[in-house]
Design a protein around this nucleic acid. Sequence first.
DNA 1: TATTGTAACATGTTTAAACAAGTTTGTCAA
DNA 2: TTGACAAACTTGTTTAAACATGTTACAATA
Lengths: 240, 240
Amino acid sequence: MPKSKYFDIYTVIRRRIEDEHYTDMLPSENELTLEFDCSRNTIRRAIQLLVSDGYVQSIHGKGVMVIYTPYSKEQYTLGKVESFSEAAVRNRTDTKTQVILFSELTVDERIRRRTGFENGVQIYYIQRVRYINGEAVIIDHNYFLKDIVKDLTEDIAKGSIYDYIENTLGINIVTTKRVFTVQKINEKDEKYLNLNGCNCVAVVENYTYNSDGIMFEVTQSRHSPTYFEFHDVATRNNKI
Amino acid sequence: MPKSKYFDIYTVIRRRIEDEHYTDMLPSENELTLEFDCSRNTIRRAIQLLVSDGYVQSIHGKGVMVIYTPYSKEQYTLGKVESFSEAAVRNRTDTKTQVILFSELTVDERIRRRTGFENGVQIYYIQRVRYINGEAVIIDHNYFLKDIVKDLTEDIAKGSIYDYIENTLGINIVTTKRVFTVQKINEKDEKYLNLNGCNCVAVVENYTYNSDGIMFEVTQSRHSPTYFEFHDVATRNNKI
DNA sequence: TATTGTAACATGTTTAAACAAGTTTGTCAA
DNA sequence: TTGACAAACTTGTTTAAACATGTTACAATA
């Protein structure tokens, strides 16, 4: 559904920045309004997206400055809400997934504390090892609400569960809350991951909400430090 | 400068969510428009900020759902663009800063590759150890453009450089790009930090831009895993 | 009873206009 | 030459209106 005008404009301008067509400043909002034949508000909305991507920065009274810098060496970047497979595809890497546990169970007190799901709810609990270029780099612990992610199978888990969720089930993923920590390795990390002598892993806890505002997934991803790299852009609200 | 209406409204609603005055859904945009005596657009702008905070999620045709969950155990959270001292103050922790290197130098090829600053530019290079509740938990390597961060002294570095930058120099920090990795410890980490047996540190590289769009600071913060916790909210753009 | 349709509500997109406020530049006066 | 000032730009905030689209609930219909 390529519906909205502002998103199309955003895409065009973003591409131009990546192609270094714009390097110093964007054309003024009025000029862009003329080029894209739309209102100033629509242009401003597109620019807002570029700001939150860290591509440009608006300067009151002067214009919109391009601050985009292409990343060079990254191997694996979770930029937005994206799955392992998506990121791998984007980075054109060879990937494989090994399911080491596929279970269905009922949330008890221990799992409730870990995930935030309510006691008594039915869930899938899956453990998977992720390989990039033949190296084991991530162990995922997935908890899915059975009510929402219906009829999950081990076979699906071998591929992309996100693809199944979005394209087969038609669930929209809207918000993801993440918590990053660094933790000492446990036995499974040691058994499966290529750790290169590290005794710690990068841990990303994901809490994913669908378009009904229901948190239907909790995932803990334990990354071998070697391949872990995460990018983020923050903009400050300068008002009191 | 508490100028804008939408930001005030955002602050009020955010407070109400934190106080659990709103738990399931926000009032509709039309109701909020009446209460705050403003246009619908202004309400929508306030809600937009709450969405990017991960406090609420809009559901087309239904309403705006509250998905706020208070954090419980966090010790140290860099939620936005905030300095060590700010975060510490927010979390009401005892902090101390020890300056272990204060130098002024010219960017050479090695520093250029590390920071992205141009060759020949004058910078401050500072190393600092940060203590929380008496424990050494972070080593900061700061690089500041001398042209912009003028007259920095070791004395200022002992306190909050960000306070000096913002309040004394009047520089506005707008955008920060961050890269997270996990790296093996080096000699300085081992010498200064409380590592609790970990042989890795959480590394956050900060690239900070002022309101002129100039990147004037590059900082590498090396965190002891024990105290490191980072929160993030991502929202997905569902358009093609 | 079950289904359909519709009205009333919700958020999403787009336009237009007006004014506020910061920056740049050229002109005019000292 | 220098300084002051105003005009012409820039982005920032706010309002108003119209229409699109998704959801809910209720009433009419089969």
